[in-house]
């Protein structure tokens, strides 16, 4: 069994949890906006344009939190540009270690932030009439959209794959972390769409968003069950650390399972429970809280594992 109880803690706690939650929401929001552009129609334009305003400001917060969590924040550029001291990495001015999810993830997040900026400017152009040179040329460009979607998905997966590639209990026990983080990130994006559609009273978009919420929650539930089965199969105490410890157990059950998964499943399964857009906004907000609890439970589970 590769996981050992002797591994020390990387001490990735609140700043990392919040940063990667925000990055997940930004990526999920961008992704749902892309879905609306690909498969929606004119009725979804209002919501899609508003969604386009969200990822970029969020992506501005992410690096700030990630950088202040570093032991040597002033050296953060060493992630992208090779430090002169790292002579073993060759003559390239760039630093890329393809064996390290953190190294490749740094590039993906940076490039995704660029796409989020373009979406932001495009939404400003549409909603406020701002004249942004060149951005209008990308309108309706499906190739551009597809690349943006791919980057959003990779950003969604990033933090899951990152903690999957460790020897920490819970984190490294299965190879489902990436998939799980993608699912919860997309779920958070659909939750943001629910909030925006509810506030905009975009009833027809809300109909599709409700269906999306239901199915994204269902897929997340399936992945979560597979993940828990994987932890049980590992038989190293990680399942108990995640689900029964006082540190993360309540967040896991109440937040990740209750708010993020059961709330959309139950409410969408019974449409009479949710007649108006105000309720959809509330559901979206609850799901977002649930996704934050999921992130907390996952990041802090390594501490719970070590304590057990």
């Amino acid at each position: 069994m590769p996981i050992t109880p002797y591994v020390l803690q990387p001490e990735w706690e609140w700043p990392i949890t919040i940063a990667l939650f925000i990055a997940g929401v930004a990526a999920g929001t961008y992704s749902v906006m892309g879905l609306m552009h690909f498969a929606g129609d004119a009725r979804d334009r209002v919501v899609a344009d508003r969604l386009g305003l969200i990822p970029f400001p969020l992506m501005l917060i992410v690096p700030i939190l990630l950088i202040i969590d570093l032991g040597q924040p002033e050296r953060f550029l060493n992630l992208i540009f090779r430090s002169p001291g790292a002579v073993e990495r060759g003559p390239s001015p760039f630093m890329l270690n393809t064996n390290s999810p953190m190294s490749s993830g740094g590039y993906v997040i940076t490039i995704f932030a660029g796409f989020a900026l373009i979406a932001f400017l495009d939404s400003l152009r549409r909603t406020r009439g701002w004249n942004v040179p060149l951005v209008g040329m990308l309108e309706g460009n499906k190739v551009w959209l597809a690349i943006g979607e791919l980057l959003a998905i990779t950003t969604s997966a990033y933090s899951g794959v990152l903690i999957n590639v460790t020897n920490q209990g819970v984190w490294g026990d299965t190879f489902l972390m990436g998939a799980l983080f993608v699912a919860f990130s997309e779920l958070s994006g659909m939750a943001v769409a629910a909030i925006v559609a509810g506030r905009a009273k975009a009833l027809e978009t809300a109909l599709a968003v409700r269906t999306g919420l239901f199915w994204f929650a269902a897929i997340s539930a399936v992945l979560l069950v597979l993940f828990l089965a994987g932890l049980a199969a590992a038989n190293d105490g990680s399942l108990a650390a995640l689900t029964l410890s006082m540190l993360v157990g309540p967040a896991f059950w109440i937040g990740a399972v209750g708010l993020a998964i059961l709330v959309p499943l139950v409410v969408v399964g019974r449409p009479r429970m949710m007649p108006g857009p105000e309720r959809l906004t509330l559901i979206g907000a609850l799901v977002l809280v649930g996704v934050l609890a999921f992130r907390y439970a996952m990041f802090f589970s390594a501490i719970a594992y070590a304590a057990s």
Binding site: I153, V161, V165, W215, F216
Partner: peptide, 28 residues
């Protein structure tokens, strides 16, 4: 875990993407 994790993430993203597209298409 790197390749399996990234691979399964990609598969789940594809499933989510198709489901999300269907949510908007079906209404149409």
């Amino acid at each position: 875990n790197f390749a399996p994790s990234a691979g399964v993430a990609l598969i789940s993203a594809a499933v989510l993407g198709v489901t999300g597209l269907a949510a908007f298409r079906r209404r149409r």
